[in-house]
């Protein structure tokens, strides 16, 4: 399973990087989304996979009964998901405004700041 997921991560990174290098802003944003998914999955997989044991403490115990999945990377990823959504929204809106204001859809045409 690890090898399969490693290949999935590689695939997501590759396509994310490729899209990030496009001159079309929409593609860039989608590349950004793929890349943040790839990073989240990377952290998740690198922390080690434990099938089906969520990090919960059942009533009325005071500690988990079995070996649990590592909770720390999960906490990191949870916030990362929300933050990358916020950044994605910001980027998307930024490009929308750029398009509305400057009327160009080619990032290569946005070379100076003072037009």
């Amino acid at each position: 399973m690890e090898i399969l997921l490693a290949i999935v991560i590689g695939g997501l990174f590759g396509s994310g990087i490729y899209l990030l290098l496009r001159r079309n802003p929409v593609k860039l944003v989608i590349g950004f989304a793929l890349l943040s998914n790839a990073v989240n999955l990377l952290i998740f997989v690198c922390a080690g996979l434990t099938r089906g044991v969520p990090p919960l403490i059942p009533e009325p115990e005071i500690r988990p009964l079995a070996e649990i999945a590592d909770p720390l990377p999960q906490a990191l990823i949870l916030t990362a998901i929300v933050i990358s959504f916020a950044m994605l929204a910001f980027t998307l809106v930024l490009f929308r405004r750029t398009f509305e204001t400057l009327g160009t859809s080619d990032l290569d045409e946005l070379r100076t700041t003072d037009q």
Binding site: P54, L56, E59, L78, T79, V82
Partner: peptide
């Protein structure tokens, strides 16, 4: 605080 869920 007790089961999956929370503020986010």
């Amino acid at each position: 605080h007790y089961l999956p869920g929370g503020g986010f």
